[in-house]
Simulated scan of single mutants.
Amino acid sequence: MSSEPITHLYRSLLRELRLVSQQPRSKRNLTPIVQLRSLVASSSSPQALSKTLLETRDFLRSSRIHAELLKRYNPIHGMSEEERIVATANRVGLNTPIEYKEE
């Protein structure tokens, strides 16, 4: 069981939501925050709420760290197929041939 107060867990969860978001604040989807507020308001057991907030925060943090590590250690992650081929060829010291294009 977490010894952190519910307000601390709630704020840390909001912080993780902010860090995960790719959009600026004005364009963010408010649905997760609204759902989180309704969860906190409707919870009858503080222990169950604390556990839920803690697990959700840990999941968001782990997902964010995993995405950062993928970007750092897998440089071709998120590239198109053509960019991936060129990057792989450059990694082993080769250049890709110029493709023939009909005019």
Rank of each mutant, 00 (worst) to 15 (best):
A87G: 07
Q22D: 06
K101F: 07
E16T: 06
R72N: 01
S42F: 05
I6Q: 10
Y100L: 09
H66F: 06
A89H: 15
S12T: 14
T88W: 13
M79V: 04
T88Q: 15
H8I: 10
A89F: 15
A67C: 02
L17M: 09
V34T: 03
I6M: 11
S21R: 02
S38T: 04
Q35S: 03
E16I: 06
L17V: 00
E4M: 09
E55V: 09
E103K: 05
A87S: 11
L14H: 12
L13E: 07
P5F: 09
V20C: 04
T88Y: 14
I33K: 09
R37A: 10
N29F: 03
L54M: 10
E4V: 08
K71D: 02
K51E: 14
K27V: 08
L60K: 04
I98T: 13
D58N: 15
Y10P: 11
K51M: 12
L30R: 09
P5L: 06
T88V: 14
P46S: 05
R18Q: 04
K101T: 04
Y10Q: 11
S45V: 05
L53C: 07
E68F: 02
L53S: 10
R11T: 11
S80A: 12
S45K: 07
L60R: 03
S44F: 09
E68Y: 00
K101P: 00
L53W: 14
I85N: 15
L36F: 09
V86I: 15
G93F: 12
R15A: 13
S38G: 00
R72P: 00
A87Q: 12
L14Q: 14
N29E: 03
P97D: 03
T52Y: 06
L60N: 02
Q47C: 07
H77Y: 08
